[in-house]
Simulated scan of single mutants.
Amino acid sequence: MSLLTTKEIMEIIPHRQPMLLIDTIEELEPGKRGVGKKCVSYNEPYFAGHFPGEPVMPGVLTIEALAQVGAVVILSCPQFKGKTAYFAAINNARFKQKILPGDVVMLEVEMIKQKGPIGIGKATATVDGKVAVSAELTFAIG
């Protein structure tokens, strides 16, 4: 059973369809760590153009999905409730395998540093236990 449903995620972050890119939160330690899940469907709107005949989830949208999990982690802290988490930096992004329709993507973000309204998270997206995307994401709370 999931810890947070899509509806509960939308109570924490402002994203809505088609830009809400996480389905559930499976694990959550507010301010520290979180694991989200994205079930990639053939019906995703970006597949119409990325790429016709060979649908692949865009890497930047995987980074965005990771950032949304990170936003849930940081905005679950009482002092940040009701605020928005913005990108401040993306570092060391690596794209190791394609994410395809039918894949279940596990999105893990561990906060490795936080000072005031700025946080840095180590982010990893996996499919079937294999790393698809990794990056270091910096968040600014506004």
Rank of each mutant, 00 (worst) to 15 (best):
I12F: 14
F87Q: 12
G142K: 11
F87Y: 15
K7L: 10
F51D: 04
K130F: 04
K81N: 14
Q114M: 15
M10F: 14
K96R: 15
L61Q: 03
G121N: 02
P55R: 02
T5C: 14
G82M: 07
M106A: 06
V40S: 02
S2N: 12
A88N: 01
S2C: 07
A85S: 10
V56D: 05
G121T: 09
M10Q: 15
R33C: 02
S134I: 04
M106E: 08
N43D: 14
G142I: 03
T5R: 05
P52H: 02
V60N: 00
M1C: 12
K32P: 05
L137D: 06
Q97H: 01
I74P: 00
G116D: 15
K37Q: 09
F80P: 00
G129Y: 09
V105Q: 04
G36C: 13
V35Q: 07
K81P: 06
K113L: 10
I25E: 06
E136A: 07
E27W: 09
G142D: 12
E8V: 12
E64H: 11
A71M: 02
E11D: 14
V40Y: 04
I118L: 10
L75R: 06
L137S: 08
K83L: 01
I12E: 13
C39T: 15
A71K: 03
P117L: 10
K113Y: 11
G53N: 09
D23V: 05
P101E: 06
Q79K: 15
V40W: 02
E26G: 09
K81G: 14
P45C: 03
Q68S: 01
A123F: 08
H50V: 02
A125P: 00
C77P: 00
V127W: 05
M19P: 04
T62P: 05
E64K: 12
K98R: 14
E44K: 00
T62L: 12
N91A: 10
T138I: 11
E54M: 13
A123N: 04
T6H: 05
V35T: 13
I120M: 09
P101C: 05
G102N: 01
A132Y: 12
E26T: 14
E108N: 08
D128I: 01
S134P: 05
P45N: 01
K7E: 15
K113G: 07
T138E: 07
M1V: 15
S41V: 03
M106V: 04
V104L: 10
A132N: 13
L28T: 11
P18S: 04
A93L: 02
K7N: 09
A89V: 08
R94Y: 05
E8R: 13
E136W: 06
G36V: 14
N92P: 02
P58N: 05
P55F: 02
F87I: 13
V69I: 06
H15I: 04
P52V: 00
A93H: 09
A132L: 08
Q97D: 06
N92V: 01
G119K: 01
N43Q: 12
P45M: 06
L4S: 03
K7G: 12
M1F: 07
L61A: 08
E64P: 01
Y42L: 13
V104C: 12
I112S: 10
A135S: 15
I141L: 09
